[in-house]
Amino acid sequence: MDVVEKAINILIVEDELLIAKSLAQKLEKLGYQIADIVSSGADAIQRAGELEPDLILMDIVIKGDIDGIETAVIINQELDIPIIYTTAYADDETLQRAEKTGSYGYLLKPFKQRELHATIKIALSKHQEAVKMQQLIALAAAKSENRSRFISMAYHDLNTPLTTIQLSAEMLEDSELQRSSGTTNKNVERIKKAVSNMSELLEDILMLSKAESGKLSLNLNQINATDFCNSILEELQPIVTDKHIVTFRNQTNPVHANLDAKLLHHLLTNLLSNAIKYSPNGGNVSLELSCENQQIILCVRDEGIGMTAEYKGKLFQQFERGANVGKIKGSGLGLCIVKHIVDLHGGTISVESELGKGTTFMVALPFLVSSK
Rank of each mutant, 00 (worst) to 15 (best):
V73F: 11
E203L: 14
G358K: 02
V351G: 03
L18Q: 05
I66K: 08
D59V: 10
I10M: 03
G102F: 04
A7G: 06
I45E: 15
A123T: 04
A90H: 02
A20V: 06
I341R: 08
V3C: 01
M207D: 05
L267I: 00
S144P: 01
V300I: 15
P280Y: 08
E115T: 15
E78P: 00
L124P: 03
R301L: 11
Q33T: 13
Q128A: 11
Q33F: 08
L289C: 06
T184I: 07
A42L: 08
N187L: 14
G346T: 12
F367L: 05
A123Q: 01
R114L: 13
E52R: 14
S196N: 15
I137Y: 04
A225I: 05
D227L: 07
N159W: 09
G334V: 10
Q294F: 08
Q77I: 03
E203D: 15
V285W: 06
Y106Q: 07
V325F: 11
N221W: 00
N293F: 05
E176Q: 15
E203C: 09
Q318F: 10
E212L: 07
S39K: 14
K29P: 02
Q96I: 07
S353I: 02
I165S: 07
I8W: 05
L30E: 08
E28H: 02
E52Y: 04
R149Y: 07
I56F: 03
N221S: 12
K210F: 13
T160H: 09
S22W: 02
G306H: 07
A141T: 11
S148A: 10
R190I: 06
F316M: 04
I205M: 10
I10Q: 02
K109V: 02
F361V: 09
I74G: 03
E203A: 14
S273Y: 06
I66E: 03
K143R: 11
N293H: 10
K112G: 11
K109N: 05
L335T: 10
K262L: 13
A364I: 00
F319K: 14
I151V: 12
T269E: 11
T71P: 00
V325D: 10
K186M: 12
K26C: 05
R114I: 11
L51E: 12
K357H: 10
I137A: 07
L289A: 03
L218D: 01
A72K: 04
Q96K: 11
T308H: 04
Q134E: 14
L315A: 13
A309V: 13
C291N: 12
T226A: 00
N9Y: 04
